[in-house]
Every structure is written in C-alpha cells, then in structure tokens.
C-alpha cells in the first residue's frame, strides 16, 4: 500500500500484480448452498460461474474477496428450453453453446449473430451468458443484446425467485438489478417471430476486442413496413443502451434511405457518449450512426424468416 503526503492514493490498475490475493473456495452443489455460503461470509465473497471476467479481476487484485463461491456446477442454471413462446436460456450456457445452439439460432437469432463477436474461441468455451450479464461490461455483446430482445432475467435469492426486465436492469458501470447475494438463473427471451428480422455488427480494432461501438437491431417487417424496432448499443456509455428515439423514427415506416437517415439523426437524442483519451464522444456517435445505417439496410434487404422458410 502506497500512501501519499497530501491526498489519498487512487490505486493504480492492479499495481502491476497478477497473482490473486488469498481467498477460500467453496463449490456449491445447490443454490441453497450458495446462498448459505454467501450469508456466512457476510458478503465478503463473490460468485464464480465461468470465471472469464472474474479471474482477471482477482488476478489483478481489483477485488480481494475472502471467499469464492463456485456456482459453475449448478444443474439448476443449465439448459435451453422453449415454453409458451419464450426461450429460457440457463445462466450457465456457455458462449460457444450460444454460438452453435440450433434453438438460439431459430428463436433468438440476434444472440447467434452476436456470439462470434464475443471474445475469442477459448474464452467462449468457458465463459457463460449469465456471467457476462451479471458482470455487465458496457462493451460486452450479450448484455446489450438482451435490451433489443426485451428479455427478462430470472433471479434467485434465498427467499425464492423473481423476474426483472432487461430494460432498466443495467443501472451503472458494472451495476445491475441483481442485488448482493442474488444469482442470475436464466434469461427469458420472447421467440423470434415469422416477420422479425435482426442484425448485429460492431466496430472493433481487432477481431474479438471490445468494440468502439457495437449495435444489434431487430424489427418486425411486414409488407416492407417496420414495427417494433428495438436497437441496442454497446460501448457507448456506462451501460448498454436502447435507442428509443431512433426506434420511433422508423416505427411504421418503410426502411428506405429517408427513414434510415431519420433514425440516424434521432440517435443523437439517444446516445451522448463521453470523450475518452482516444475517442471523442462525437466520433463514437458518428460511428454509432454509421453502424445503425448499415444494420437497418441489412434488415431491410434480408429475407424474413418466412421467406427463408419458403426458399
């Protein structure tokens, strides 16, 4: 610990250390065990699923919990199932399963389209959708896309289970609607309809990097007219964001260049990215507009699932 004569030191990232501080480890065999362990540690602990976001945090000593509770073997958090027009994706579903699952491709194709952009192959073999959503990196793909999908999160605590919509779930940088001690169990996604279309793209410096901007769009397009447009942006602020004004600009419109330009202009109301040392907010907004335009053109031109099925 370094202290300074005048003002307190802001700890530098990791202080150039990469071995985790000591902690105890507990492997939970049930949610009940996990909650009990959490209670016993009085919150001085962390849950670990795939560990792909957590391990660097521990290694850099950005967090130094006294206990790590391994929830990666909880069967209750596994599996992908369909019921009543809703796809339930277990929180321990790995990114690689998201990429290759036929159910995801059929019922939540926006997630399939975003999946190849999630980190790198080896990370995708271990990282889980629940883990990335709970970690809530504003530049991560899956958390952002739950906004465009109107997903709901199934969250468990020692009292029972509750649901929380994606919209409003991301509260601040790495902050979510999951209360201390709670565990994200599953993601519920309304299934992709016959006339729905979606597209995802991001602008990353290198393949697999966190993007400068990423965007997923979905809309229902019937007879060329778009409704229920939902656009989700990542890496544009402290949390992933919906673009309500831009969505409104295409509601009931044909997706022609006029409508697309209107959506791009409206995006200025939705996104106000900050400047950082490399990228100005204005530049990020510009890139977001370019991306939105490209994606809307893509869904305007792409065949709907109905057409695909017929072909």
């Amino acid at each position: 610990m370094v202290t300074k004569t005048k003002k307190p030191l802001v700890p530098r990232l990791g202080s150039e250390r990469v071995k985790p501080a000591p902690f105890r480890y507990f492997r939970a065999n049930s949610l009940a065990e996990a909650f009990a362990a959490y209670a016993e540690a009085e919150g001085d602990c962390t849950y670990m699923a795939g560990g792909q976001s957590l391990l660097p945090v521990l290694s850099l000593r950005l967090q130094t919990p006294s206990l790590v509770i391994d929830i990666s073997r909880l069967e209750e958090l596994r599996g992908i199932s369909l019921a009543n027009g809703v796809l339930r994706i277990g929180a321990l579903t790995r990114h690689n399963e998201m990429l290759h699952s036929p159910e995801i491709a059929r019922y939540a194709p926006l997630l399939s389209k975003a999946a190849p952009y999630v980190a790198h192959p080896a990370i995708r073999n271990k990282g889980t959708i629940g883990g990335t959503i709970a970690h809530a990196d504003p530049a991560a793909e899956f958390p952002g896309m739950t906004l465009a999908l109107n997903a709901e999160f199934e969250i468990a605590n020692s009292e029972g289970r509750r649901r929380e919509p994606a919209n409003g779930f991301f509260r601040g940088l790495y902050e979510t609607g999951i209360a201390p001690g709670e565990i994200l169990v599953a993601i519920h996604v309304p299934v992709f309809g016959e006339h729905d279309r979606c597209a995802y793209h991001e602008l990353a410096r290198r393949r697999g990097d966190y993007p400068l901007v990423g965007c997923g769009v979905r809309a229902t397009i019937r007879d060329g007219v778009a409704t229920n447009g939902r656009f989700a942006f990542i890496a544009v602020g402290a949390v992933p964001q919906r673009a309500f004004a831009a969505e409104a600009a295409i509601e009931g419109q044909r997706l022609d260049e006029t409508a697309i330009a209107a959506a791009q202009t409206a995006l200025e109301q939705d996104l106000q990215p900050d400047d950082d040392s490399e990228t100005t907010g204005a530049m990020r907004l510009h890139l977001a507009k370019v991306l939105l335009g490209r994606l809307l053109r893509e869904i305007a031109l792409s065949p709907s699932k109905a057409v695909e099925a017929a072909a």
Partner: peptide
C-alpha cells in the same frame, strides 16, 4: 495472466481454455 495472449491454452475436457483463467 489475464486471458489475452493464448500461450496458456490447455484442453479442459477436450476443449481449449485459458489455464490462467481457471482456478
């Protein structure tokens, strides 16, 4: 030691993973 370089890849149950990102 933060899951970026890929030098530490091993197979976990037959699939490549970063051995620096697993306890």
């Amino acid at each position: 030691e933060m899951g970026v370089c890929g030098a530490c890849l091993v197979l976990l149950n037959g699939k490549p993973i970063h051995s620096c990102l697993m306890l």
